[in-house]
């Protein structure tokens, strides 16, 4: 693909949008995993395990891993797509699907489906 006249290639912007989708999805996945497993719940207590905040509980791990996934995926995708003109429509649709999954997995009636029955 070629960029419209006198504009930069869209690869870096596609990378930024996709990375936001990846970060949202990873956040949502850890919200679900936290409900599924006591071991993962303990692992996600980054405040107790790594001193990241105090009294935050497993939320500290969920958001930290989501943000790390966001920035790492952004760097990787940026390097992969820089200087390239990509099909932005496809990249944007993929981003929306990832963000939509992230939204859905942070919705309590959905993530509580994965909690063990009491």
């Amino acid at each position: 693909m070629t960029a419209p006249a006198e504009t930069k290639p869209n690869g870096p912007v596609a990378a930024a949008f996709l990375a936001a989708g990846v970060g949202s999805l990873v956040l949502g996945l850890f919200v679900v995993l936290n409900e599924m497993s006591e071991d993962i719940n303990q692992f996600l207590r980054f405040d107790e395990n790594y001193g990241l905040g105090s009294g935050v509980g497993p939320l500290s791990g969920k958001v930290t891993l989501g943000v790390i996934a966001y920035f790492v995926s952004w760097i990787v995708l940026h390097v992969a797509l820089r200087g390239r003109e990509v099909n932005f429509r496809n990249a944007f649709v993929a981003s929306l699907v990832l963000v939509g999954l992230g939204f859905a997995l942070t919705f309590p009636p959905i993530f509580m489906l994965f909690a063990p029955a009491e």
Binding site: A16, G23, S24, L27, L59, V63, V99, F103, T106, F107
Partner: peptide
């Protein structure tokens, strides 16, 4: 609270992607 504490974190990631697009172009 269970929804709020999680969904809020999606906002800065999306807003940063938009700010980057504006700065880039």
């Amino acid at each position: 609270m269970e929804w709020k504490e999680h969904v809020a974190w999606i906002a800065p990631m999306l807003a940063t992607a938009v700010a980057f697009a504006v700065a880039y172009y």
